[in-house]
């Protein structure tokens, strides 16, 4: 029963993405991030190794620090904004689906966007490496793995951003908090506390700005942290929706 309702909700949220302007964000922000990263790689030859790992470090430095979390926040804020407009709250909550399904369906829809974003980011990384930086060969397989790990780490960030955007009618505040969260995430990771901060998981997962694997041997705690934060934020959102009065 719950799974059926969840599937129906996921399809509904997915159809909201059709022809939406949020796809422009999906396209442009990784492009901007890739341009910064490649530019930095090309003009920092003294400090950055001239290989795919070096380029990955530069790409993900900007991407994980400034771009990915706000982009996830935009996805979440856009999807909730649809319900904040007019009286759509009454529409979605008078449907015969549990409120938690609504939250999980929005998470699924934003995850789909995040997954595509990671793929697009990786294609840009590859394209910039070959065409702009002129690197030989192909990127190591590990870079693909780190991009996929970034998608996994995006789930708790999306869950948190969905919670914030559900509570906050305004579009900008959750996005600004995400930007702040991304920067703080770097500080957490540099102090070894990356697993305890949702935005830090993104830095760890993507191995941002590092030449070695930050998560070597730490995959189970990383997965547990992702699952734990996701469960916490989704449960909080579901409980709040169940109890709130729709004014």
């Amino acid at each position: 029963m719950f799974l059926k309702a969840l599937w129906r909700s996921i399809r509904a949220e997915d159809s909201k993405l059709r022809g939406a302007r949020v796809w422009a964000v999906f396209f442009l922000i990784p492009l901007l991030s890739a341009a910064y990263g490649t530019f930095s790689f090309c003009y920092n030859s003294a400090t950055v190794t001239r290989d795919w790992n070096g380029l990955w470090g530069q790409h993900t430095l900007y991407y994980a620090l400034f771009f990915f979390a706000p982009m996830a926040a935009i996805y979440a804020a856009w999807l909730w904004r649809l319900e904040h407009l007019g009286h759509n709250w009454t529409l979605v909550l008078s449907m015969p689906v549990p409120p938690l399904c609504l939250v999980l369906a929005k998470l699924a829809a934003t995850f789909k966007l995040a997954l595509f974003t990671q793929m697009w980011m990786w294609l840009l990384f590859f394209g910039c490496g070959k065409l702009w930086a002129g690197l030989p060969g192909v990127p190591p397989a590990a870079c693909l793995l780190w991009a996929l790990r970034g998608a996994v780490a995006a789930v708790p960030v999306l869950a948190l951003q969905l919670l914030l955007s559900m509570l906050w009618r305004g579009f900008a505040p959750p996005v600004l908090l995400a930007l702040l969260g991304g920067v703080v995430g770097f500080l957490f990771v540099s102090n070894g506390w990356g697993l305890y901060w949702p935005y830090g998981l993104l830095v760890l997962g993507m191995n941002a700005n590092q030449g070695y694997d930050l998560l070597a041997g730490q995959a189970p705690p990383f997965a547990a942290a992702c699952a734990g934060f996701t469960f916490l934020f989704c449960a909080a959102a579901g409980a709040w929706l169940k109890r709130r009065d729709i004014a």
Binding site: S15, K16, R18, G19, L85, G86, H87, N88, T90, V92
Partner: peptide, 9 residues
Amino acid sequence: ESPSYYAHL
């Protein structure tokens, strides 16, 4: 209240 809809659809 007023009807609910998704304007871009």
